[in-house]
C-alpha cells in the first residue's frame, strides 16, 4: 500500500512536468515575455528599459526552454521554464504579473471557496443518492417514469438559468437572502444558502440519473436474487445489499473531485461575488495575468492527481476485493 502510494506520487512528477510544458507552450507561443511586460506596464509610454526592468523583476529575462548562452546543464536550468517550474513544485507561486503575492492570495481565498464548494458537494451527494434510491425503489411504476422525466428536464436546463432564476426569485422578488456581498463569519452562513441551493439543484438532474443507473445495474446482479431467495424484503435488499454495492462506484467517483473543491466553482463564485479561488481565476483570465492562471493550472493538476490517488485508496476502503500493490 505504502509502496503503491509512493509510486503514484513519483508518477505524478512527469505528469506535472508535462502540464507545465503545455501551459508554458500555450502562453508563450504567441505572447512573448515582451508582450506580457508591455501589457502589464500599460500600453502607453513603454521604454525598452522599463520592459527589461519588469522582466528582470518578474524573472522573465531568460530564454524560454533552452539557454544557448550557458553551458552544460545550465542550458536547461537557466531558463524561464525551469526556474518557474521548480518554484511551482515547491508550491512557491511567486508574484503575479501585476505584483501580488499569489501564495498569500490563494491561502486567503481558499476558505470562501471551500465554504461554498463543500456544502454543495455534501448536500448534493446526499440529495442525489436519496433521490436515486427513491426512484429505484419505485421501479416500474408511474412514479419512476415521472421522476426520470423530471431528471432529464432538470439536466437539460442551463446552470446559468438556475443561478439567474435563483437570484431573481429568492433574492430580488422575495428579499429573503442577500444577492451579493460576501463577508466572513456568521453572516456568511445566511448568504451562502442561495449559492449552495443553486449549486445542489443544478446538479440533481445528472447526478440522480447517474446513481439510478448504478443502482439499477446492481439490481440485475445474481447476489440480489440470492438475497431475495433468503426471504429479505425489498427494502432490506435495497438498503443492505444494493446500496452497499452501489456505493463503491459512487464514493470513488465522488472522491476524485474532493481535492478540486479547493479550487472553487468558477461560475457560482463569480455570479455571487464570492472572493474565492474561482472568481480569482476568472479575474486573472479577464486581466490576462498569466502568472496566476499558471499557478491555478498547476494547483488544479496537483489536486486532480491527489484525487486519483484518493480514489484508489478509497476503493480499498469500500471494496474488500481490491488491494493496492
Amino acid at each position: 500500500m505504502l509502496a503503491y502510494i509512493v509510486r503514484r506520487i513519483l508518477y505524478a512528477i512527469p505528469i506535472l512536468i508535462g502540464v507545465n510544458v503545455i501551459t508554458f507552450a500555450l502562453f508563450f507561443a504567441v505572447n512573448t515575455p515582451n508582450d506580457v511586460a508591455r501589457m502589464q506596464l500599460g500600453v502607453k509610454r513603454v521604454t525598452p528599459q522599463a520592459i527589461e526592468e519588469w522582466k528582470r523583476e518578474h524573472g522573465y529575462d531568460k530564454p524560454l526552454f533552452y539557454n544557448a548562452a550557458r553551458s552544460g546543464l545550465a542550458r536547461l536550468t537557466d531558463t524561464i521554464f525551469f526556474q518557474k517550474s521548480v518554484r511551482l513544485f515547491a508550491f512557491d507561486f511567486g508574484r503575479s504579473d501585476s505584483g501580488r503575492d499569489i501564495g498569500a492570495d490563494i491561502r486567503q481565498r481558499m476558505w470562501p471557496s471551500l465554504a461554498i464548494a463543500v456544502p454543495v458537494f455534501i448536500v448534493g451527494l446526499l440529495t442525489n443518492i436519496t433521490m436515486a434510491l427513491l426512484i429505484v425503489f419505485f421501479r416500474a411504476t408511474y412514479l419512476e417514469v415521472s421522476a426520470v422525466v423530471l431528471t432529464v428536464v432538470m439536466m437539460s436546463i442551463s446552470s446559468l438559468f438556475y443561478i439567474i432564476a435563483g437570484q431573481f426569485l429568492i433574492g430580488k422578488l422575495m428579499h429573503l437572502v442577500p444577492i451579493s456581498g460576501y463577508s466572513g463569519g456568521l453572516s456568511a452562513f445566511k448568504f451562502l444558502v442561495l449559492p449552495v441551493a443553486v449549486g445542489v439543484i443544478s446538479g440533481i438532474g445528472s447526478g440522480t440519473r447517474w446513481y439510478r443507473t448504478i443502482f439499477l445495474e446492481e439490481f440485475g446482479k445474481d447476489y440480489v436474487r440470492t438475497a431475495r431467495a433468503k426471504g429479505l424484503s425489498e427494502l432490506r435488499v435495497l438498503f443492505r445489499h444494493v446500496l452497499k454495492n452501489g456505493m463503491v462506484p459512487i464514493l470513488t467517483g465522488a472522491v476524485v473531485i474532493l481535492p478540486l473543491l479547493f479550487t472553487g466553482n468558477l461560475i457560482l463564485e463569480s455570479f455571487f461575488g464570492i472572493p474565492g479561488l474561482g472568481s480569482y481565476t476568472i479575474d486573472a483570465i479577464q486581466g490576462q495575468d498569466f502568472a496566476i492562471v499558471r499557478s491555478m493550472v498547476f494547483l488544479g493538476s496537483v489536486f486532480y492527481i491527489v484525487g486519483l490517488l484518493l480514489t484508489d485508496i478509497s476503493y480499498t476502503l469500500v471494496d474488500p476485493r481490491i488491494r493496492l500493490r
Binding site: I15, L16, V19, I22, T23, L26, F27, A29, V30, N31, L260, T263, L266, T281, I285, Q288, V293, M296, V297, G300, S301, Y304, I305
Partner: peptide
C-alpha cells in the same frame, strides 16, 4: 491533459 482544469486550458488557447 486531463489533469489540467478544462476551463483553464480553453482560456489559454483562446487568449492565444
Amino acid at each position: 491533459l486531463n489533469s489540467i482544469p478544462g476551463v483553464l486550458l480553453i482560456v489559454g488557447a483562446i487568449l492565444m
